[in-house]
Amino acid sequence: MAVTRNAEATKAAKKTGPVTAWLTRHASTAVGSLGRLVRQPAASLMTILVIAITLALPASLHLVIKNAEVISGGWEGALDFSLYLKPGTSLKQAQALANIIGKRADIESVRLITADDALREFKAASGFGDALDHLTSNPLPHTLLVRPSSRSTDGSISLLREELGNLPETDVVQIDTEWVQRFHAILDILQRAGVMAAALLGIAVIVIIGNTIRLDIQNRREEIEVTKLIGASNAFIRRPFLYSGLWYGLGGGLLALALVSYGLSALEVPVGRLAGLYGNSYQLISLSLKESASIPAIGMFLGLAGSWTAATRHMRRIEPR
């Protein structure tokens, strides 16, 4: 008789088309699950908010790193280094050296900062003006600011530095961009830490949703028992819970997106002001369309994963008594 009944069901399904019937079934389960969440707005919103915050954290960290990379990317071209000449070098020698170096093909430009210029600048900027007036001689050396040609590679630049450093007039070569490299190293560490944090927070979302679904299953224990008695399979009973997880994930993802966008817009003005102070007009980079879409998508995936684990684990334990 099982065969007869299944045949009847198939016949019934054929009238509307099996795919349509399947879709209708899933759609009604999805809508039913959504309705259940809407009917308990406070509890659902709490869960969604927790998920949203958990998702927003790695997303904003990602944005911070992304913006820092773009800002520091502008500095990457700054390959300049300073050549401090030996204290005894005369102004003429310094000018001659600047001319010679300036003619080299691998050099874009050389600027000479004379010891007098440097002292004047230092006096103006340091605030030690009066104290410095008491100096009998200028302790500062002449300096050449060297900018390698834009075609230089990392290797050719370090060779160039070595070569210029070995000149008899040179005292010290100071690389101005070292801190940029350090900054990049820090960013790299941050990025890795961000990936780890994102993974942990992702697990947190799975646990949050899993726990919510577990409670939901416990509350509906009687209903599950009755449906099992009537002959529902585990898959049938699990389905609405999977959709709940999916909705939680989607809701959390969308809210996370809203939180991140709100945070960005709140930071826009102060960042603009800061950039203005540097004579710059930097605009914060927001999430790309792909990234924006991936937050709710990740939320849905995590929601599904969480509800799947919870439902599969607890469903088996509920058997009609």
Partner: peptide, 8 residues
């Protein structure tokens, strides 16, 4: 549960 269409 048995998968009948809505009308039937």
């Amino acid at each position: 549960i048995a998968g009948f269409g809505h009308r039937e």
